[in-house]
Design a protein around this nucleic acid. Sequence first.
DNA 1: TGAACATATGAACAATTGAGAATGTTTTGC
DNA 2: GCAAAACATTCTCAATTGTTCATATGTTCA
Lengths: 116, 116
Amino acid sequence: MLEKMCATCQYNLSIINMLKNELPSENMIDNLTNVFKVFGDNTRLKILWVLFDKEVCVYDIADSLNMSQSAISHQLRILRQARLVKARRDGKNTFYSLDDEHVKRIIEQVLIHISE
Amino acid sequence: MLEKMCATCQYNLSIINMLKNELPSENMIDNLTNVFKVFGDNTRLKILWVLFDKEVCVYDIADSLNMSQSAISHQLRILRQARLVKARRDGKNTFYSLDDEHVKRIIEQVLIHISE
DNA sequence: TGAACATATGAACAATTGAGAATGTTTTGC
DNA sequence: GCAAAACATTCTCAATTGTTCATATGTTCA
């Protein structure tokens, strides 16, 4: 299946190859685990899922997950700080969406892992 | 940069595209977050880093991370249960290595995310 | 301006988690 | 068989984390 890698794959691999021979700094490890910790919560992962292909306001996220507005708002702040989602205010509503394509790619890789 | 995706990239994207339109089951979410939780700890991430390109026994992992054998063993069990590392006994030693290439790919994606 | 709606924040509490200490289990060499 | 080496496991405690409840902030419109 891996006959020939495209530029994207090669670029990605090069990043990890650069680092594989030495332990990264404690700071780099912190940055990495902090991102993983943000993904490691059911509520946050569901929020990301809701935002996969559309922009949604806080109330609608809470509604579709059947949770309180407060709980969702708290988690959205954590997701925002990790730069996984971005917010856009429109009148009384704040609409959230994924900050970049990496979010999908990260979840994608874990999905591939558990589906084997 | 994304001129044309290779088979690997397309396969990967197809997995997430399949799922994006509906909330996954609670069970699927649990499986996903459990993997993220395992990655979300400094000690475990460093262990994975040590194992990136070689097989290492418990004592040597503890030594290179300057931590107790007990702490390392504890985390290795969690990594084993998540199928991120595998163990091979050779006499008195147990050698650990990454269970598959996904481990690298998962960390790789997060590295790409934080390096932007 | 003030009521109504949408969202954010703070404090408190319960649940989870990582590390250390002590102990248990396997394996090797004598 | 026994001692030593290499790991694994159990228990406990301190620290972190997610949720709820109450309250604050911000926005629109009459």
